[in-house]
Computed example of a mutant assay.
Amino acid sequence: MDELSRILIVDDERQNIKVLTELLRNDYKIMASKTGEQALSAVFGPNPPDLILLDIMMPEINGYEVCRRLKANSRSRHIPLIFITALDASDDEAKGFELGAVDYITKPFKPIIVKARVRTHIQLKLKTDLIERMASIDGLTDIPNRRNFDVTLEKELRRVARNNSLLSLILMDIDFFKKYNDHYGHAKGDSCLRRVAKALAGCVQRAGDFVARYGGEEFVIILPETDRTEAIGIAEKVRLAVMGLNIEHAASDVADHVSLSLGVTTVSGDQTVSPVDVINEADAALYKAKASGRNCVISG
């Protein structure tokens, strides 16, 4: 692993934390919490763990309740959780598995068993993360794909309605890309798509901004909390960035180099719109940009 996986140890007994830390610290980055509340704060912090070792018997919030809360939240339900406990009754184990735990480690700890079970579940987590990433990332351009975009747009529109905020969408198309492929070949076309995708990703800096490949030579950018004027400015920045790549396009009818046509739309929380509505509005603006001579930004 290029970067050590994070393990969160949750136990109200300092000695148990010390023992587990000594066993695992050479192979993993260790985080520790002594209470359920501290554990929840760590999980929902900026650096969530890849695996949680959770004691059952703790004051105030016990391990079962911590597990229940983690599995009820979409941000944490995917994190594998191993209970650490002195309990050996089968019904206690059954309760933990019913709540979503993946395994048990009993006290006193047996180093070989602890390391083996932790290693197994970390490896499974890494494989699961890789599969999920492959399902949401475009294989050619290495930016989010259409499926990822659909999920993100729906989520962001719910946020707009909930917070009565703004959202802008930029839909764009590489001008005369079919002619580019016909003239230079598909290998060059793939290279062009990768370079354009990288340029787009470099134009958005805020954490919530989202760039994706929409399909073929089309790309899309979601801009939360962005009004129409700001979105048009970002779209123009994107257009100039792609022109600045200076990718030769001798077959283009609009420029000597690869260019973009871009359509912009903005929605607010007081509008009742579906993802399809927003996409259609951006697509209509994009159509106008093409009808206006291409290599330009039009706002719908």
Rank of each mutant, 00 (worst) to 15 (best):
G100T: 01
F97R: 00
A135S: 14
Y104P: 01
R158N: 15
K107Y: 06
I105G: 00
V160R: 04
E98L: 01
F149A: 10
L153M: 15
I105M: 03
P111E: 11
L124P: 07
D142K: 12
L153N: 03
I112H: 06
I105Y: 00
F97S: 00
T141F: 03
M134W: 02
L157N: 05
Y104Q: 00
L153Y: 03
V114Q: 04
A161H: 08
L126W: 03
K125I: 09
F97V: 01
I105N: 02
V114W: 02
K95L: 12
S136G: 07
R147F: 06
P111T: 08
A101N: 02
E156H: 03
N145K: 09
K127E: 15
G100A: 08
F109P: 04
I137A: 03
R147Q: 12
E132I: 10
T106D: 02
E98Y: 00
G139L: 08
T106I: 11
A94E: 10
K110R: 10
L153E: 02
I113M: 09
K155S: 13
K110P: 01
K107R: 15
R117N: 04
V102I: 12
Q123A: 14
I143Y: 04
K115S: 07
M134S: 13
A135H: 06
T106W: 02
L140I: 12
L126S: 14
R133V: 06
N148I: 12
R158Y: 08
G96R: 00
D138G: 09
D138P: 09
R117E: 07
T120E: 04
K110W: 03
I113P: 01
Q123T: 13
I113G: 05
D129L: 07
E132P: 01
E98N: 10
N148G: 13
A101R: 00
S136Q: 09
R158W: 06
V102Q: 03
I105F: 02
E156Y: 03
E132S: 08
L99D: 00
F97M: 01
K95G: 01
D142C: 15
A135E: 11
K127Y: 08
